[in-house]
Design a protein around this nucleic acid. Structure first.
Length: 433
RNA sequence: GCGGGCAUAGUUCAGUCGGUUAGAACGCUUGACUGUGGAUCAAGAGGUCACCGGUUCAAGUCCGGUUGCCCGCCCCA
């Protein structure tokens, strides 16, 4: 083999189980999480939106914030062809690094508020950030998310979303998770808090890390989740103590709604969100299992009441979350359903049986029964080996004997019981199973 | 972007002090068993020892560089 072209650095293939031992890259697990999530969205009344994977760069610059790391150094951005197909002379475009801004853009562009006071949308798809390598981080990664956009900022909306997430976690049997909640204030009280932070931090700045010094200038709130200066951060005032009356009430109601649903949580005053658009309620669900290392946040979200205005839309309330599919899959138990496992495997012996098997496969599939077979002439032993490996519950044996008798042998691979059936009986039986 | 580690079969890894034709396990193909899977045994296929250069009579092994991957920091989901 010559020099091979491989996946781009920090990207990967999500593969069928047979082709990799890396269980966190098995495509059926991604499928399963998506299936469960879609079922949750059906129960809770969300509709799907699919936005383009690239947008005008301006959308993210305005929506996510110029000073965030995502926008300042992690976006895949290029110039479109300009007039006369001139390279580099066109608009600045960007592969989406997150999906909230595009959804709000769509909300505004299609004036969704006209049709509905409260729009509940979900999305599933790849996002792109120029990551630099660490466990569970990929330049193309997958997110499932939800946005509730409209007139209401009722905290019951927030609690309901978290209830739904709990349903998903339970359904997926993801153990050892905990819910962290906080309020990051609003445009009314956060500036005050930021000022207070600045005053408190200023004298300590010299003892703090370079990043914190940078954040001091650009996004002071983020100093709170610095992992290096934890000792200093602990001494800082809590945003919980400085919320305005409205924010305080909102947060109290949110917690009451959680209590009413018997959802347990931890208030973490250090929890802030990395993106500029968040206001009031912020939350994360983290795993306490070891296998994610420091990538312990399975999902995060919060309220973003000002985002629509920032993007040129009407005053609108918004709340949502995004979950990292790649991380979810790591936390998944091993035995998730794999739809690629066929119901039956057809073992055929001899040329005539092969011809028959092809038609039988066709008729089984027409009847909605998944089946597999191979196209080589093998002895029965090797065919059964393939049947075994396919993990099919049943195998169907066709040879000269069966063709002469007009009956097929159906073998239950679990208890090794066999019976002879006509084709009609066999198809009916497999249809029911 | 910064720091550390690693790179040998499809996979996980041995490979001593630099020394003949590079090994094991698992997996794969086939057979023992002519029509019955998971067990056992046997045989077989499968390698540019990441790449480029250097040292040497001799390099998978030592040195330098490159690339890739992993782990941490940062950031985020």
């Amino acid at each position: 083999m010559g020099k091979q072209v491989k996946t781009v650095k920090h990207t990967r293939d999500i593969l069928p189980r047979d082709f990799t031992t890396d269980t966190s890259a098995h495509s059926h697990k991604f499928q399963y999480v998506e299936k469960v999530a879609r079922e949750a969205f059906r129960l809770y009344g969300f509709q799907e939106i699919r936005t383009p994977i690239f947008e005008y760069t301006e959308l993210f610059a305005r929506g996510v914030g110029e000073e965030t790391d995502i926008v300042s150094k992690e976006m895949y951005t290029w110039r479109d062809l300009g007039a006369n197909n001139t390279p580099g002379a066109g608009d600045s475009l960007t592969l989406r690094p997150e999906n909230t801004a595009p959804v709000i853009r769509a909300y505004i562009q299609h004036q969704m508020w006209v049709q509905s006071e409260l729009v509940k949308l979900f999305y599933v798809g790849p996002q792109f950030r120029r990551e630099h390598g660490r466990k569970g981080r990929f330049r193309q990664f997958y997110q499932i998310g939800v946005e509730i956009i409209g007139k209401s900022d009722n905290p019951a909306i927030e609690a309901e979303v978290i209830e739904m997430l709990q349903w998903i976690l339970t359904e997926l049997k993801i153990p050892n998770t905990s819910l962290l909640v906080n309020s990051v204030g609003c445009p009314k009280c956060r500036p005050e808090f930021n000022e207070m932070l600045k005053r408190e931090i200023a004298p300590k700045l010299e003892q703090m890390c370079g990043d914190c010094n940078h954040r001091y200038q650009t996004n002071i709130l983020r100093v709170l989740d610095c992992k290096r200066d934890m000792e200093i951060v602990k001494q800082l005032p809590s945003i919980q103590d400085l919320l305005c009356v409205e924010c305080r009430e909102h947060f109290a109601k949110f917690l009451a709604h959680l209590d009413a649903r018997k959802l347990s949580y931890t208030v973490d005053p250090q929890l802030v969100r990395g993106l500029d658009y968040y206001t009031r309620t912020a939350f994360e669900i983290v795993t306490t299992s070891e296998n994610l290392g420091s990538q312990n946040a399975l999902l995060g979200g919060g309220r973003y009441d000002g985002l629509s205005e920032t993007l040129g839309g009407p005053p609108t309330k918004g709340f949502g979350f995004a979950l990292g599919l790649d991380r979810f899959v790591i936390s998944l138990p091993e035995d998730v359903p794999d739809p690629s496992i066929p119901t039956a495997f057809i073992a055929h012996l001899g040329e005539k049986a092969f011809e028959y098997a092809l038609l039988l496969a066709h008729r089984l599939r027409q009847a909605g029964v998944s089946c597999a077979m191979d196209f080589e002439q093998r002895n029965l032993k090797n065919s059964m080996k393939l049947a075994d490996r396919s993990k099919a519950r049943y195998s169907i044996i066709i040879g000269e004997e069966e063709l002469n008798k007009g009956k097929l042998v159906l073998r239950d691979m679990l208890n090794r019981e066999q019976k002879e059936l006509t084709e009609t009986e066999l198809v009916d039986f497999l249809k029911q199973s």
